[in-house]
Structures are given as structure tokens and as C-alpha cells.
């Protein structure tokens, strides 16, 4: 029987993959994709618990997360375009103006 626990573990795996991607990749575009992975992991969790608790609010929350993810992707990709135009690169470690 597949319960909420399965979903939690799956979501956890996706989350960890997303976090690792966030840290290891130099390409800004792939970093954004990793972020989308994390969002999906969160959504999976919400859906699973919504079903388990018999409460629709979880799904509503997932809708809002998808919306915010869309907004984030739009902004992030806009930033990528701007970065590319400015530095001729999409590598994050080339944008190190803040180095102390």
C-alpha cells in the first residue's frame, strides 16, 4: 500500500537532488532548473498530505506555489538574459562582484 510516507521519501529525494544541483552547477540556467525541482518536491508533499488529511487547502497551496514558481522562473530567466548581455556568460562564478 502506498501511503504518505512514500511520497515524503520521494519528495525528500527530489529536494536533495535540487539542493545538490543548486550547489554544484555553475550554469545559471541549470541552477534555476534545480530550483524548479525543489518546488516540485514541495508540491508533492502538499498533495500527499492534502489527500491524507482530507483537506483541500493543500492543493490550493500547491496552486499558489506553482504560480510563484512561474513568477520566479520569469524573473530568473530575465536575470539570465541581463547577465548574459552584461558579462557574455551565464556562469554564476563569473558574477563575483561581491567578493570580499
Amino acid at each position: 500500500m502506498i501511503g504518505a510516507m512514500h511520497y515524503v521519501i520521494l519528495s525528500l529525494i527530489l529536494f536533495v537532488l535540487g539542493v545538490i544541483g543548486l550547489m554544484v552547477r555553475r550554469n545559471f540556467i541549470t541552477v534555476l532548473m534545480s530550483l524548479e525541482l525543489i518546488f516540485n518536491a514541495a508540491n508533492l508533499n502538499l498533495i500527499a498530505f492534502s489527500d491524507r488529511l482530507g483537506n483541500l487547502s493543500g492543493q490550493i497551496m500547491a496552486i499558489f506555489i506553482i504560480t510563484v514558481a512561474a513568477a520566479e522562473a520569469a524573473i530568473g530567466l530575465g536575470l539570465i538574459i541581463a547577465l548574459e548581455r552584461l558579462k557574455r556568460t551565464v556562469n554564476l562564478d563569473d558574477a563575483n562582484e561581491m567578493r570580499g
Binding site: L22, M23, V31, L92, D93, A95, M98, R99, G100
Partner: peptide
Amino acid sequence: RRLQVGFAEGYA
């Protein structure tokens, strides 16, 4: 100041 590496993935 060495903590401020200036790399986004470093911060992550």
C-alpha cells in the same frame, strides 16, 4: 571577509 566568496553557489 573571506566568507564573502562572491559565488552564488558558495552562498547556497
